[in-house]
Design a protein around this nucleic acid. Structure first.
Ligand SMILES: [Mn+2]
Ligand SMILES: [Mn+2]
Ligand SMILES: [Zn+2]
Ligand SMILES: [Zn+2]
Lengths: 151, 151
DNA sequence: TCCTTAATAGGAATAATTACTACTTAGGAT
DNA sequence: ATCCTAAGTAGTAATTATTCCTATTAAGGA
């Protein structure tokens, strides 16, 4: 995972993360900051293993358990969104705004795209009859350009 | 898992399943028929364990491996749809028509609802720029009426 | 009925996630 | 600045979901 693009934006997000921690009485540990920064600085929607790899140089003793615990905690506090992609590994997104995803069924990559209609479509009455609707999720599946090129 | 409603419709689906098997050179084994029937006769979108439980009386020796293998094969041949619900168990739907789902974040249940807009919305250019789009998936998350009643 | 090959059962292996616990540390109090 | 304490972490074990393996079985064609 490459880190380094849009450093200003990333650091702004990290600062916001620190504030949320302080407001919520969560300790701002180096592990939490680095895990959050790893997510905020990439568009790859990383899973736990990708986070571990990207931090391996700077934090070689970071434990798997800490990554899992930390990401779950982030989700609970609305700092990240958990993405149920294809396959079995949970992936995370530091962009918590509502937006659709492209899932490649070949390589498993997850990409953002934008679509006003998909970002604003509301749950219909038929859905609300089933219970309380908290969020709407849209994704498309297909084969990404990189995988198409390989074929 | 309760089986038995809409028996005619279920049996029509089972007959179609048999035809697909014959056409594709797949053996019509009792295991396959019962697993397919278990899916076709419920609206619960069962996971592997639910299928096993529902068939435990009639097929006590049905192996987990067979259920996994069979459901994957069904998906490959377009007989069922695999649903990536919340949490870690894959769920399956014998209704392969495009329709949105309601996921309860409390009990994990999966319910159907209908919404013309969600069933016809097409992938936008911004998605197609990322690769070949094969399908569009929409679901909502919330808390189902049963869980709301318990609170 | 026989034969061939696909399919199954049962158990072992793998992969993802969670649980446990002794040790560490962030951040408030002194 | 130092101390205290509860919250957090590392390392490891346990659990859970899924896949792999292989000897045995049986579907469906000859
Ligand atoms: Mn995203
Ligand atoms: Mn459905
Ligand atoms: Zn790809
Ligand atoms: Zn519920």
């Amino acid at each position: 995972m490459v880190i380094g693009k849009n450093i200003e934006r990333t650091e702004k997000m990290v600062e916001h993360f620190r504030e949320v921690c302080r407001e919520s009485g969560l300790k701002v540990t180096p592990q939490r900051v680095e895990i959050y920064r790893a997510l905020a600085s990439t568009k790859m929607h990383p899973d736990v293993e990708m986070v571990r790899e990207s931090l391996n140089a700077s934090m070689p003793n970071l434990s798997t358990d800490t990554i899992y615990r930390t990401l779950s905690m982030f989700e609970e506090f609305g700092l990240v969104t958990r993405i149920e992609a294809i396959g079995n590994r949970a992936r995370y997104d530091a962009d918590t705004s509502r937006h659709p995803h492209f899932f490649c069924t070949e390589c498993g990559c997850v990409k953002d795209f934008h679509c006003d209609e998909m970002e604003t479509i509301a749950a219909p009455r038929s859905a609300k009859k089933l219970g309380r609707v908290d969020s709407v999720h849209i994704h498309v599946r297909g084969v990404c350009n990189e995988c198409l090129a390989k074929e």
